[in-house]
Design a protein around this nucleic acid. Sequence first.
DNA 1: CATGTATATGTTTAAATTACCAAATAGGAA
DNA 2: TTCCTATTTGGTAATTTAAACATATACATG
Lengths: 106, 106
Amino acid sequence: MKEKEKLYFDERAKMIKAMAHPTRLYILTKLKEAEHCVCELTEMLGFDASTISKHLSVLKNAGLVSDDKRGLNVYYRLENPCILDILECVDSAIRKKLKSQMNMLK
Amino acid sequence: MKEKEKLYFDERAKMIKAMAHPTRLYILTKLKEAEHCVCELTEMLGFDASTISKHLSVLKNAGLVSDDKRGLNVYYRLENPCILDILECVDSAIRKKLKSQMNMLK
DNA sequence: CATGTATATGTTTAAATTACCAAATAGGAA
DNA sequence: TTCCTATTTGGTAATTTAAACATATACATG
């Protein structure tokens, strides 16, 4: 693999990696519907606020969300909604995998 | 987040995580064009064959590829090609991010 | 100004990841 | 059968990750 190509795949993988955590993926799907402040997301998820804040900073560094302070709260919104289109394929792949696992048992 | 919902996001994240490594992502794009044996992928990537083999087993466990032994070689192929559709969005998100970083410097 | 609340950051710890090497395995070829 | 080759598996060390807690910061409000 050429060096330039490698760097390109590094960048791509970095962005996908930012999505590759259940909490962050959940956050992204929530932000698809509407913007939310850290406290709302913390409430929904039930982790420590510092944990959620760090997950949000990962997403922000990746360029997947942006934020906006209003009053005491910081509101986050989804920057690239198309990123969630993958879920349709992921869900069908999960169903396919489960089916094949069921067939293994026969 | 409800327990059932959590399990669902765990599964989704697990599959996305399998893609979230430069080497594995590169392998997936190569397999989109054609099936390849481990030795060919090892050659392309320049890592130890055992490293490539382990990456392939991660992809296989995730249900993203399947394999098939013929002669001495094991051939891998892409099981859910739609998974790579995300790259279009990822690439545009990377361009968008780079642009905004350039604007920061002005 | 002083206080309180939301968020971010630093630290620590446990667990997971990735690469290599060495060794095991499978099965085709001599 | 014996040897070779492709692949997988096990072990190890270095690095990264995610969670909690404690602390710092920012700033709205009394």
